[in-house]
Every structure is written in C-alpha cells, then in structure tokens.
C-alpha cells in the first residue's frame, strides 16, 4: 500500500536520500534501522508529506504523495504518524488530543468520536487520564496517548518515528507493548527504531539504511541474526554490544 521508487532528497548540498526504493504491503510491519543521520526519519517524513522529496515517486494506496497537492490531506488521514517527541497538544486534555482529528478534520459526530476516543485510551491503558493535560503525564504515557491519537484517525497505516528514543528506559516497555498489540491486530506499520529486540520479534521485514541508501533488507530475523553486509554487521555489533 506504500510504494517508494528511487526517492532522492537533499537538504542544501547534503543528499540524505540517494535513491530509496521500497514497498510496504497491507498488514506488514516494517522496521527501518540504521545509524543516526542515515535518512531513516526523512523517509517516514516524506511518506506523509511533512518533507518534500526531490526526485522519484512515493504513493500511498495508489495516490501520489505531493505535499502541495490537495490530496495530501486524504493521505495524511490514511497514514498517521507517531513522533519521537510525542508532539501532543499541551493546551488540550488527553481525550481532546485524541478526538481532535476525528472532530475537526473528519467532522465526525461529537458523541461517537468521544466514545471511540475513550475506548482507544482504554486500549492503551490510560482510560483514567482522559481529562489530564499532557504535561502532567510521563513520557511513556504521553507516547501512548499519541498512539491513541494516531489510531483515532482510523488509519490504514501508522508511521512511527523513533517512538521510544525520548523515553526513560523503564517506560519503553509499555509503549512497545502497545505497538506489539497493534501489530498483532494486523495494523500496517513502518517503524524507525533502535529497539533491535522489537524489530526482531515483531517486524516482518527490516530495512537497514546507511548513508541514504538501503544497504540490506529482508526478513527481520534473517537480517538481524545473520546480516550479510559488513556495514550491517558492524552496526548491529555496535548496537547490541556497545561495550
């Protein structure tokens, strides 16, 4: 349902994506791993049009991604995003954060949206925080609210941009747990992450990106357990055995 063909992207003189081609099927969980600055996040940001791309093509459900075209709204309502730093709206309650999109973008009836919002909060284990404001929550709780907000759009896919990188280590598990449940329920997910355990156990496929190109890709367990390319081997050795 997500198709990237030879995507190039530069920031000034710095070419961060040097011809990325990949596809994500419906119901698939794809993890993108690789060193920082390799262009992982940029790929996600290009898919839902937060970033433009210079060359190549990206399409979602056959719709071309062009951030200046009106169709971008339709793409964004089909592909939600979860950010590294949560980006919840601090001036609204947790429940209001969740129903903001359904109410104001999709114009759903209020009662139904609120009911589903509460159900989603219950699903991520935060039913009792509905009326709190985001700054009163821990990072892990905030990220779970952000996932509920993404789900509230009833998206066909969710993009996760390093969803646990800004969390204290003891809070990572809660967020990964929610994500694992989503994957089990058949949600299409593209996850940029440094959590190799999650990638190995949950992902169907892994893309290893370095220097703006896909160095290696394949079944998650194969890539992570028996990496073929020296750069993948080197990266995994550093991540798994930092000392």
């Amino acid at each position: 349902m997500i198709e990237l063909t030879d995507v190039h992207k530069s920031f000034g003189a710095n070419e961060v994506l040097k011809g990325i081609s990949a596809s994500v099927q419906k119901g698939e969980v794809v993890c993108i791993v690789g060193p920082s600055g390799s262009g992982k996040s940029t790929i996600l940001r290009c898919i839902n049009g937060l970033e433009s791309y210079d060359r190549g093509a990206i399409s979602v459900e056959g719709l071309k991604v062009d951030r200046d075209a009106p169709s971008i709204v339709s793409i964004r309502t089909q592909v939600s995003m979860v950010f590294q730093r949560f980006n919840l709206f601090p001036h609204r309650t947790v429940l209001e954060n969740v129903v903001e999109g359904p109410l104001y973008v999709k114009k759903e009836p209020r009662a139904a949206a609120l009911e589903r919002g509460r159900a989603l909060l219950a699903e991520v284990g935060l039913a009792e925080k509905a009326d709190a404001h985001p700054p009163q929550l821990s990072g892990g709780q905030q990220q779970r609210v952000a996932i509920a907000r993404a789900l509230a759009m009833q998206p066909k896919a969710i993009l996760f941009d390093e969803p646990t990188s800004a969390l204290d280590p003891e809070l990572v598990g809660d967020v990964l747990g929610v994500m694992r449940k989503l994957a089990d329920d058949g949600m299409t997910m593209v996850v940029v992450t440094h959590e190799m355990g999650f990638a190995r156990d949950v992902a169907d496929r892994v893309l290893f990106i370095d220097g703006g190109v896909i160095v290696e890709q394949g079944q998650a367990k194969a890539v992570l357990n028996q990496p073929q390319h020296p750069r993948t081997q080197d990266f995994l050795r550093r991540v798994l055995h930092p000392l």
């Binding site: 839902n48 049009g49 937060l50 709204v73 339709s74 964004r76 309502t77 939600s80 995003m81 950010f83 980006n87 919840l88 709206f89 903001e100 999109g101 104001y104 973008v105 999709k106 907000r149 993404a150 759009m153």
Partner: peptide
C-alpha cells in the same frame, strides 16, 4: 507537524 499529520490544513 502533529497537526499536519492528522490532516489539518
């Protein structure tokens, strides 16, 4: 970005 990502203009 969060606003845009839920389809807000």
């Amino acid at each position: 970005e969060a606003a845009q990502s839920i389809g807000m203009g």
